[in-house]
Nucleic acid binder design. Structure first.
Lengths: 219, 219
DNA sequence: TAGATTGTTAATCGATTAACAATC
DNA sequence: TAGATTGTTAATCGATTAACAATC
C-alpha cells in the first residue's frame, strides 16, 4: 500500500521491525517469522509491513535488504539529521559517546553547557560550547533537534534558550515538565519512570513485550 | 472509581500527571487546569484522574498532595524497589550518578561489568562487581529488575546471565532485540530511536506532545 | 497442483470524545 | 442560587483481530 498515512500505532512499531531486520542474514523473510521472533500478532505484522513496503511476495515473503531500506525510509532516517545536546553533565557526555545514533542517521553536532568556558572544550571529536553560542550555532547549521540533559532545576531555562535558538523538537531527559510554544514538540525520556513502569507491568503480571523506544513512550 | 483495572492508555499517562502534580504548590487543582498545562483533553484527564483517585470534589477539584499520593500508588512506587545495572560503561556509570531514581522509589543496588575485577570497585557509594557475582547478589537481595547498558554485541549474552540470575524485567538500552523466556519482560529504551521518532513527528507536522516516559515511551 | 504466504475486507475490541447529570 | 467542577453514560473513532481471497 505504501501510503503516506501510516497509523501512529504502526509508526511506533517500525523501530522494532528495523532493529530486528538488521540482524537477519538471509535473503528473504516472511511476516510470520518476524511476528514469531518479535512476539507480535502475525496479522498485525503483515499489515504493518504491507503499509511500509510493496516488496512482499506470496510464498516467499520480503527481500530483507529492501524491506530494511523501506523501514528506514518510513522512519525518515535515510538522510543525516543533526542534533545538539544541551547539558554536558554525566548524561550529556555519555550520550556524546553513545555510538547508537549513527545507525539511525543521526549525528550529534555539538554540546552546550552553562558551565562551559567561552573557549570550546573538546570531547572526542565533538565540542562543548558555552550556552551563549547555542543560537548562532543552531542557525548556522540549521539544527532543529535538541537533547536536553540538564538537571530538572535548570530544564525550563535551558528549554527556553533552545526554543529561542530555533529548536523545534526537544528530547527531554530531565524528570520534569517543561512548557514550550505550540510549534515546539517535547518528548519526555525519563529513565526512572521507564523503570518504574516496567516494574509495574511485571508486578501486575502483565507480560507484554513493549517497545518503548522513545522511552513512549515513548517509553 | 479507583478500580484495579486501569487501562493501558491511562497507565501510560500517570507519569506525566505525577511529574506535573509534583510541581504544583497550591492546595487544590482541577482536571481542567491539569489538562491545559499538559496539553491533553479535558475529559480525558478527568476520566483518568477519576480512575486513579476518589478525592475529587465538584467545584474545587483535587487536593494536590492526596492526588500525588494516589498517582504514586497507581504507579506502584510507594515502596522502595531495587535494580541492578549490567554494563558499567559510559551509559551505565552515568545512570549510577543519575539522581532521578529516588523520586520514583527506585534504588540502584549495584552495577556489574565483564571488565570489572573480582575486587569490587567503588563508584560513589555504589559498587561495581564482576559479572560472576550477579547471580548471588540478585538472590541475596532479591533483585528482579535490571538495566542493561552493555554494547549491542554483548547484550544477548548479558541478558542471558541476568535471566539466569533471577531478573524478570530488563530495561534494555542496547539498540538490539534480545530474546528472553516468556516469564521475563523486556523494555527497549533506545535513545537514538526516540530521537529519530521525534524528528519524524516534527517533520510530519504532527505536533502531539507525547509522553515517551520510557523513551515510551517512549519511546 | 498444493501449500505457504501476501493482501483485503469485515468484525471486534478498546480508547477517546461528546453530552449530560450530579454535586458542593 | 449560580457556576464550576466532578463523574457517568452514550457515540465516535481508531486499532487489532479474524476470515477469506489472491498469488507465486
Amino acid at each position: 500500500m505504501q501510503s503516506t498515512t501510516l497509523s501512529k500505532a504502526t509508526l511506533s512499531r517500525i523501530p522494532l521491525y528495523l532493529q530486528y531486520v538488521r540482524t537477519v542474514n538471509s535473503d528473504m523473510i516472511s511476516a510470520t517469522i518476524v511476528a514469531r521472533n518479535l512476539g507480535l500478532g502475525e496479522v498485525q505484522v503483515r499489515k504493518d509491513l504491507g503499509m511500509i513496503s510493496r516488496e512482499g511476495q506470496p510464498k516467499v515473503g520480503y527481500p530483507v535488504r529492501k524491506l530494511q531500506r523501506d523501514l528506514e525510509k518510513a522512519l525518515g532516517i535515510h538522510q543525516k539529521i543533526s542534533a545538539v545536546i544541551v547539558g554536558a553533565g554525566k548524561m550529556g557526555t555519555a550520550l556524546m559517546d553513545y555510538d547508537g545514533f549513527q545507525e539511525y542517521g543521526l549525528e550529534i553536532a555539538a554540546a552546550f553547557d552553562n558551565h562551559a568556558s567561552e573557549v570550546p572544550f573538546k570531547h572526542g571529536n565533538m565540542s562543548i560550547y558555552a550556552m551563549s553560542n547555542l543560537k548562532s550555532f543552531c542557525q548556522q547549521y540549521d539544527v532543529r533537534l535538541g537533547i536536553l540533559t540538564v538537571p530538572a532545576s535548570a530544564a525550563q531555562d535551558a528549554a527556553d534558550q533552545m526554543v529561542a535558538s530555533g529548536i523545534t523538537a526537544i528530547l527531554n531527559f530531565a524528570p520534569c515538565h517543561i512548557r514550550v510554544p505550540a510549534h515546539v514538540t517535547v518528548q519526555q525520556l525519563n529513565v526512572a519512570l521507564a523503570l518504574a513502569h516496567l516494574n509495574l507491568m511485571v508486578n501486575q503480571g502483565k507480560k507484554e513485550q513493549e517497545e518503548m523506544h522513545y522511552g513512549k513512550q515513548i517509553v
